[in-house]
């Protein structure tokens, strides 16, 4: 099966039945699509208390000020991108924070930019997911170094990405990979190729295991 119509799928044009059993006879890696309804880039001064409270008013979360950390709450994630820059992702179609942020922060020296449609988010899970990602990424992805609550912007297979580990109750880790939409096709195909030895499959259950 190939997805052709859906505007929001990063898997457009990829044969989702192309699952492939690895040497161990099973699927060491799986990929799934994570649909996000809103991506918002936020810039502002985190030492300004009005800014922090203004954001919290809208999102219900405290902006992470520790580098490379993420705060998640009820379908909303807020990633640290830089000392004055964050990425918000909303996974609930009924919620939109764009306008509310602008209203709540009006008068402050800030920038709220709608990135929806320009980004893709997908999950890489399974026993071998860490190995497969490590083949094309210099970051230490081991849970000791890259724990729950971390996120990191880095390079994966020549593409700029934001990787966020999400640990399931079983202890298994799913890596959420955010990439610019135009790179998604390249990246998925690269990862499918890298996962050949371990075997891979596509899971269509959107957001499986993730918050």
């Amino acid at each position: 099966m190939t997805i052709s119509g859906s505007k929001h799928s990063q898997f457009v044009g990829i044969d989702l039945d192309a699952s492939f059993k690895g040497i161990a006879g099973d699927y060491g890696v799986w990929f799934n699509e994570i649909s996000v309804t809103e991506f918002v880039n936020l810039r502002g001064d985190s030492t300004h208390s009005g800014f922090l409270t203004g954001v919290q008013r809208v999102t219900g979360v405290e902006l992470p000020v520790i580098p490379n950390t993420v705060v998640r709450s009820g379908g909303l994630s807020c990633h640290w991108l830089g000392p004055d820059e964050w990425l918000m992702t909303v996974k609930k179609p009924e919620v939109s924070i764009m306008q509310d942020l602008e209203d709540s922060l009006s008068g402050l020296h800030i920038a709220v930019t709608d990135l929806t449609g320009g980004q893709s988010l997908f999950g890489v899970g399974g026993r071998q997911s860490r190995d497969v990602l490590s083949a094309a990424c210099t970051l230490d992805l081991h849970a000791d170094a890259f724990a729950q609550g971390s996120c990191a912007q880095t390079i994966l297979a020549h593409s700029n990405v934001l990787i966020t580990p999400a640990f399931q109750s079983s202890g298994d880790c799913v890596f959420e990979v955010l990439v610019r939409r135009s790179y998604a096709d390249h990246l998925i195909r690269w990862l499918m190729d890298a996962a050949h030895e371990d075997g891979f499959e596509f899971r269509l259950d959107d957001n499986s295991g993730l918050d």
Binding site: G82, T138, L139
Partner: peptide
């Protein structure tokens, strides 16, 4: 200074 040790290719 913010992210810690990273590979040269990121810079």
């Amino acid at each position: 200074p913010w992210c810690g040790s990273r590979d040269q290719s990121e810079f």
